[in-house]
Design a protein around this nucleic acid. Structure first.
Length: 675
DNA sequence: ACTCATGATATTTTT
DNA sequence: TATCATGAGT
């Protein structure tokens, strides 16, 4: 096998197939290439179904699989598992979950489904000192699950009212989920672990099968995932993890950088390989990034280098205010686009919080520059989308009471809140699931004739479509007919105050149908269940309209948060809002004090840049309507001045030389067009 | 059941 | 400043 296209450490990482291996892969060091080549190399010795590669996003998984298929062909890669942790978990659960008392058609609850459940539970509780704050409770439950703390084992701190409330709600929440035959995101991993722990034959099956395990972005794993890996690799012990401790930016979500720092403790015979040669950024950019990250303690320690040129210097500029900052950035985009022959899509504006995008959007729109915004409110979080999906979810799992209640009277069909209350009461009294109770509205006393009729009609509708969908020969058509019959579109027009908004919502509704349609086309799958599973695992990168992937293809300036920029690269990056209180963020300074993670975030942003990197801050900024003075971020000061060109508020207009260059490029462009 | 006004609140968000 | 959730009023 030809490995000459790899550098020495890369080659080592590929060839070291046995035992525990930690590949410390710096930003832009070609780690995806290493992983895919490693898989290809393994495939020469073992069959595909003994190899599993885990990633964090579906997109990464898809890309990885594509590349492997390209290298070794479809036939040899058949049976290879390349998936996210969660997909692997669901796969195991669909097979084995009945052992834990769930049914195989369990639903996966989204954040909003969860929130609805918790809200109802919290309302029933009144703990002193805790306002009924479902968000916070849900967050605490999730944190607990991420640490593998079960409902019974949860120990609230005596002085924390929220934790006490959580202690009350957590077990109830878990019971409710089970009653709905539903699992939440954290459960997917948690329950998988439970299966492996409690049923040795299940563990035996998988640990025997998985002879070689590889993990990407290992710095982002949490305790549960680390444990899962330990279990799965406990027979063959061939576990290769790839990651970069300097890019660990999801600590707040339960990711434990300790996993990558202490990996050797669990695997004493560990081989460590460092990939430090960078193939992405210019020398200046790497020097500045290295200079920043050395301020962190507790790291494996890496120094990125490049064989390429030093390139353009990294520029820092302190602007007057936010407005000024946006003008400078947009002005620079204009000039660089001509000077360096860049397209719009080669520029990225990165910020700490999504709220910072607005001012740049305004400026870009004013200058007629196309842009795409990544992040913010997600497609599947929109109300109209959730409502539409709720119908489908209930058809797939009639025990899904959260969604059943959501659609019971939407669109309005004459089952008001009081009626709903009575139905719920009846369900509790009779000890039957809601769906059962609804089958016989006449058994519920106190329900008016009209309401009973409405319920009968609703149930009839649901069963009719359930039957159609189960036949499964026209998924798209069935969904379309359903939405038409319940008049969802009309409802959207009726609700909205302005027609603009309504049209946008209807469009989103159509996108749901498109999503079904493109899913059927792509996967050749036609069951409702499999579609819902895909959607629930938040495969937002499914190349449908509005996805991150699709957006990045257009020729438009990209705006996004630092978090969502990880894994991407751009010829030219603007890192904006480099101020104390924003990056590092105020909340961090006040609460966890984990400045190191903020520094890593800044580092991630800087290392996205290939040729041009500009850091910006503003001396004053409008915040919540008030103009506040701001200090430049400590991170700016941590980069030695000789690695950074400090550019002070000189006029935004182009210097004459650039003007000239611009004109000459313009003319040569015209010449090209004329042939 | 729907509208309107008030006030609290304002990180990041791979699955 | 913008948004959203909540509660009073129609």
């Amino acid at each position: 096998m030809d490995l000459s296209f790899l550098n020495e450490p890369q080659r080592q990482a590929v060839l070291q197939t046995e035992g525990a291996v930690l590949v410390l892969a710096g930003a832009g060091s070609g780690k995806t290439r290493v992983i895919t080549t490693r898989i290809a190399y393994l495939l020469r010795q073992v069959s595909a179904d003994h190899i599993v590669a885990l990633t964090f996003t579906n997109k990464a998984a898809r890309e990885m699989l594509d590349r492997v298929v390209k290298q070794v062909g479809r036939k040899k890669s058949k049976g290879l598992i390349v998936s996210t942790f969660h997909s692997l978990g669901v796969r195991i659960l669909r097979q084995e979950i009945e052992r834990l008392g769930y049914k195989r058609n369990f639903s996966i609850y989204s954040a909003s489904d969860q929130l609805r459940l918790v809200r109802d539970l919290v309302q029933g509780q009144l703990v002193e000192g805790a306002a009924a704050d479902a968000d916070r409770v849900l967050w605490l439950i999730s944190q607990a699950k991420n640490r593998l703390i079960s409902a019974d084992a949860y120990q609230p701190a005596a002085n924390d009212a929220y934790q006490q409330l959580t202690a009350q709600v957590y077990p109830q929440y878990q019971r409710q989920l089970k009653a709905c035959n539903a699992v939440d995101f954290d459960d997917i991993l948690q329950l998988t672990i439970r299966l492996l722990h409690e049923f040795p034959e299940v563990l035996e099956h998988y640990r025997l099968r998985f002879r070689y395990i590889m993990v990407d972005e290992y710095q982002d794993t949490n305790v549960v995932q680390a444990q899962l890996l330990k279990l799965l690799s406990s027979f063959h012990h061939n576990l290769c993890v790839v990651g970069d401790d300097d890019q660990s930016i999801y600590g707040w979500r339960g990711a434990d950088p300790g996993n990558i720092l202490d990996f050797g403790k669990d695997f004493p015979s560990l081989k460590v390989i460092k990939l430090e040669q960078n193939y992405r950024s210019s020398g200046h950019i790497l020097s500045a990034a290295n200079a920043l990250i050395v301020h962190n303690k507790d790291r494996h320690g890496k120094r990125l280098w490049t064989a390429d040129e030093q390139g353009a210097p990294v520029v820092y500029r302190c602007c007057d205010d936010g407005e000024d900052e946006s003008t400078v950035v947009v002005g620079r985009i204009h000039s660089l686009r001509f000077k360096s022959q860049l397209q719009y899509r080669d520029f990225a504006i990165l910020y700490r919080t999504n709220g910072q995008s607005r001012i740049f959007e305004e400026q870009l729109r004013y200058e007629n520059i196309p842009y795409v915004l990544i992040g913010g409110q997600q497609f599947f979080d929109r109300k109209e989308v959730k409502d539409a999906l709720a119908y489908l979810k209930v058809m797939a799992n009639t025990q899904d009471e959260v969604n059943l209640l959501r659609i019971l009277n939407y669109p309005k069909r004459g089952i008001g809140e009081t009626s709903a209350e009575r139905i719920i009461q009846a369900s509790v009294d009779q000890g039957l699931p809601l769906w059962q109770v609804l089958q016989h509205p006449e058994h519920i006393t106190e329900l008016g004739d009209k309401t009973q009729e409405a319920i009968r009609e609703f149930v009839g509708l649901m069963r009719r479509y359930q039957r159609r969908l189960q036949q499964g020969n026209n998924l798209v058509g069935d969904v379309q007919d359903l939405f038409r019959e319940i008049k969802l579109e009309e409802e959207l027009y009726r609700q909205a105050d302005d027609p603009q908004k309504a049209r946008r919502r209807v469009e989103n509704l159509h996108e749901v149908i498109n999503a079904v349609s493109s899913y059927v086309e792509r996967e050749g799958q036609t069951t409702l269940e499999s579609f819902l599973e895909k959607v629930s695992l938040l495969d937002r990168d499914e190349p449908q309209r509005g996805s991150k992937e699709e957006k990045l293809k257009q020729d438009a300036v990209v705006l996004m948060s630092l978090h969502s920029s990880k894994g991407l690269e751009f010829p030219c990056v603007f890192l904006v809002g480099l101020e104390e209180g924003t990056l590092p963020h105020k909340k961090i300074l006040e609460e966890s004090g984990d400045v190191a993670e903020e520094r890593r975030l800044c580092y991630v942003g800087m290392t996205r840049a290939r040729q041009h990197l500009m850091l910006l801050s503003a001396a004053r900024r409008r915040k919540y309507g008030r103009l506040q003075p701001r200090d430049a971020s400590r991170f700016v000061h941590e980069i030695p001045p000789e690695l950074l060109v400090h550019e002070d508020g000189e006029p935004v207009a182009l210097p004459a030389a650039e003007e000239e260059q611009l004109a000459s490029n313009f003319f040569s462009g015209i010449k090209d067009m004329l042939g």
